[in-house]
């Protein structure tokens, strides 16, 4: 009943389902047709993938992969937000710290996070920490750059209005600069979240060799491929897609809750 009402209010959901079904059907028909005409095909068909998936979801190791990747992403991402937001704000409001830190930041920023993997493995005591560190780096830059840009461009009229009304420095920061920067914070978070999934999968392929348990979805894909199960590799890929999508949706939801005034969502 409530689901029915919900679906009527959000007609986009039907369209989304329809587009996914169309693609799967087209894919299935194309490959099946090719085989029927006598051409060999290495590409798995959706029906076989779904059948395999039904088996896979009964296996604990599959869910363990989800859990491992998700917790790495969340840990790296959370640290990036916790450090990146204050750091970006500091750079924006304090000229000295900008002069001090920004050049270093700009030199480190172009280094792709994955280039850090070897150094990180040596530097951090555990493999887990190295992966989280690399994920953290991946989203940290995006968060800082967006927060810095947002906080530096706060409309001076808001600051003047608040100051005329008697706001002190802390109130200006807390009640004007911070809320004015929130949309940029969420933009940075969304970009950063996207990067974390790219980084976690690659890092897991490189760094966690041989650990079926706790290898994560990246390892799941690689291991399936090496083991000769293309279906299962595709299942891993789709799982990463779904995981990334749920993470971004949660973030958008949080954005809408925290910024009810902000209608055009990043």
């Amino acid at each position: 009943m409530t689901l029915k009402i919900y679906l009527r209010k959000h007609p986009g959901i039907w369209r989304g389902v329809l587009s996914v079904l169309t693609i799967l059907l087209g894919w299935e028909c194309y490959i099946q047709g090719k085989i029927w005409l006598g051409y060999p095909s290495q590409v798995p068909v959706p029906s076989a993938i779904l059948a395999r998936w039904a088996d896979v979801i009964m296996e604990g190791s599959y869910w363990m992969s989800w859990y491992s990747s998700y917790s790495r992403v969340l840990a790296g991402f959370a640290i990036a937000m916790l450090l990146g937001i204050p750091f970006g704000l500091l750079l924006a409001v304090n000229r000295t710290s900008r002069a001090l830190f920004f050049p270093v930041f700009e030199i480190l920023r172009p280094i792709p996070p994955l280039a850090w993997v070897p150094a990180s493995l040596i530097f951090w005591p555990t493999q887990e920490m190295s992966i989280i560190f690399v994920i953290f780096l991946g989203s940290f830059y995006a968060v800082v750059i967006n927060v810095l840009g947002g906080a530096k461009n706060v409309d001076i009229r808001y600051l003047r209005a608040a100051q005329s009304m008697g706001a002190n420095q802390w109130q200006l920061f807390r009640r004007v600069i911070f809320p004015a920067t929130l949309p940029s914070i969420f933009t940075g978070a969304a970009v950063g979240m996207g990067i974390t999934w790219e980084v976690v999968v690659a890092a897991e392929m490189i760094a966690v060799g041989g650990r079926v348990y706790g290898g994560g979805l990246g390892f799941f894909v690689w291991n399936s491929f090496v083991g000769g199960s293309i279906e299962q590799a595709v299942i891993g890929m789709l799982s990463i897609g779904i995981a990334g999508y749920t993470a971004s949706s949660l973030l958008r939801y949080a954005g809408r809750r925290l910024m009810p005034w902000h209608t055009s969502q990043a």
Partner: peptide, 30 residues
Amino acid sequence: QNSDRMVVFQNGALFPWKTLLDNVSYGPIV
């Protein structure tokens, strides 16, 4: 800058993140 001289700005400067009520009650509260 002091609240004995209050400015209404050229293109409007209500805080977009506050409702009208919160915008208006902000001054006496701070």
